[in-house]
Design a protein around this nucleic acid. Structure first.
Lengths: 346, 346
DNA sequence: TATGTTTTTGGGAGCGCTCTCGGGAGCGCT
DNA sequence: AGCGCTCCCGAGAGCGCTCCCAAAAACATA
């Protein structure tokens, strides 16, 4: 027997509408009737059909999380798993289903909007890792499906986003290294076609400037978020003889550390290291990495909260949120060995 | 203006039904008419409403991927990201939407069946990391929503699953270490409430037995998939003075390696190491880990293929598939240093 | 008890699709 | 020209819900 609202209503001696009201927790139902209906629902294990509900109410109870195809290579960085975890957690709390869109190719990515968004499969989307000039963002901007960007988009004014304070974080890392007395501070950055990469670079340079240092271009490198790229960047950086390096992500820092170990350069004795992210790998390396911790999972949670607010109409208009970062001092920067910060290093 | 089938039909001078036929690629439409309709669809950017389609056709075009709450801690192991990637890839290929269910608590997990499966939100589910006596499996077995298990369930006969040949893989690792001349081979296993953990243990012991070795209980440890647990297990194992260790996952092996490095025990000179999984971390460690590679992403792909087959009725009944593993010899086992396998070690 | 007011309930009308069915058009054959 | 056949196409009837509105019931007041 297929259960429907009508059927449950018959069993409880009420109409379809009343059952619907009970299920949706509307108040104008006599307590006695409500209980009777709930009893029937419980004993039959009835669940309203999601498709029918969506069709009638124009709400699906599903939100999408979009991770662009460029991220593919980057999936062995724990950043995305953690973000997904936060997003998922917030979805569970809100009894919302999470649809995950992970792309391998540009073509797949282009299909997203027409196939998923335009068809009303989702009530809204969280978009991550957008790049400058991202076509998906342009499309979303011209459509009327709510969306929230994780990270700062090109056009921040008109878009709701949750970002991390990359700039302040990188600044504090640079300041910390300066204060420790390092004088040739190298930089291994993230791609600058993302605002995160850009901001970390800007923050780093600002930090140095605040100490009165002028950065030598020879000491600047760029990776692509992979461990391997960190490794290569560090090998190349060695020629410039840095006495410390700020690496824009933990994963790249682990690669950088590998290059250092291979060259029998001791960290932090010969070269100090600070990275960015504060993910598990930073705690497992030898030595443990000093790093700028960002609240990845919380960022995901917040993005979902904002999106659901937008979907429900509880909140409106472009909203911006910036999550704080925190410098975590461990072993790799050498602060521990050196006693008070500011003590000369050599 | 809201677009509907009817509306598109009017524009193209045909009926709703004809537009539907064109959209669903049914053949009984004159080419000329078909083109006319397609032109209108293209220029309007019309997309059929997913909810309405689901309601009428009783198919959602969505499948679920379920990762139980126990996995939570385990999310910094690249296994699940890779699996998700495979699943996602297969979904994209089939124009199917992937719903990800990640749980933090038992309670959330219990909500899955009633909220998602019973309501018809998904056409089917892929379930991973099931444990012995998993209640979700019992529930799925008694329902009529298609599902595929990744890994071997308790009750293999009646369930469609995709497993990896853990036993053969572990066996080959044990044999390899034996042949290298190691004599006190330690074991750091995965939890034995999963068939994967069990099979790797069984395979390992079988491998030793095939070499005529009898395993000392002192040399057996168990971790919980985390890097930390591998670290601790290795520290504890040191007392038993193994000359080689087989670790049941790469992540735990990285932890084990860390313990060894800390104790200034050289790998492979003092202790040989072989692990299982063949994930990126095994290639990044120093020394690089010899490991039994399993095709994680392909497993995900295959699970989705089977599930969609089940959903579409293309295939039927319980189907079992076992993916092969492959021993990858790198540095940590010492084979490279020692020349021909079988050469004595000390 | 009659009247007005509020609360509770039931039924109708869709939401935008798919699917079945039957009628008309076009074709070949006798 | 008449017949049967296939091929296309349109109309009707839902799918199982929500939402609105009007009727019924319950309660309050005089």
């Amino acid at each position: 027997m297929k259960l429907t609202l009508e059927e449950i209503g018959r069993m409880a001696g009420v109409s379809r509408s009343t059952v619907s009201r009970v299920l949706n927790n509307e108040k104008s139902v006599r307590p006695e009737v409500r209980e009777r209906v709930q009893a029937v629902v419980k004993e039959t294990g009835y669940r309203p059909n999601a498709a029918a509900r969506s069709l009638a109410s124009n709400r699906t109870g599903v939100i999408g999380l979009v991770i662009p195809h460029r991220v593919h290579t980057l999936f062995d960085d724990p950043y995305f798993p953690l973000l997904i975890q936060g997003v998922s957690q917030a979805c569970n709390l809100a009894e919302t289903t999470l649809a995950l869109f992970l792309f391998q190719t540009e073509a797949e990515e282009e299909e997203l909007y027409p196939r998923v968004v335009a068809s009303g499969t989702v009530d809204g989307v969280v978009v991550t890792a957008t790049r400058t000039g991202d076509p998906l963002l342009a499309r979303l901007a011209s459509g009327d499906v709510p969306y929230v960007v994780v990270g700062r988009p090109d056009d921040p004014e008109n878009v709701t986003y949750v970002d991390v304070d990359n700039r302040a974080g990188a600044q504090s890392a640079a300041l910390h290294l300066c204060n420790l007395g390092y004088e040739r501070i190298g930089f291994i950055g993230a791609p600058t076609n993302t605002t995160a990469g850009l901001d970390r670079r800007t923050g780093f340079l600002e930090g140095l400037a605040m100490c009165g240092a002028v950065q030598d271009e020879q000491l600047m490198r760029e990776g692509d978020y992979t461990e391997e790229s960190g490794y290569r960047a560090m090998r190349s950086l060695l020629a410039a003889q840095p006495d410390a390096v700020f690496v824009a992500t933990d994963t790249m820092a682990v690669g950088a550390l590998r290059a250092l170990v291979e060259s029998e350069i001791s960290v932090p004795a010969d070269v100090g290291l600070v990275s960015f992210d504060g993910l598990p790998p930073s705690e497992r390396s030898l030595p443990k990495l000093s790093t700028v911790r960002q609240p990845v999972s919380a960022t995901g949670v917040r993005a979902v909260e904002l999106l659901l607010g937008l979907v429900n109409g509880d909140i409106t208009g472009p909203l911006h949120e910036v999550m704080p970062t925190e410098l975590v001092i461990r072993e790799s920067c050498g602060a521990a060995r050196m006693g008070a910060p500011g003590a000369p290093h050599h």
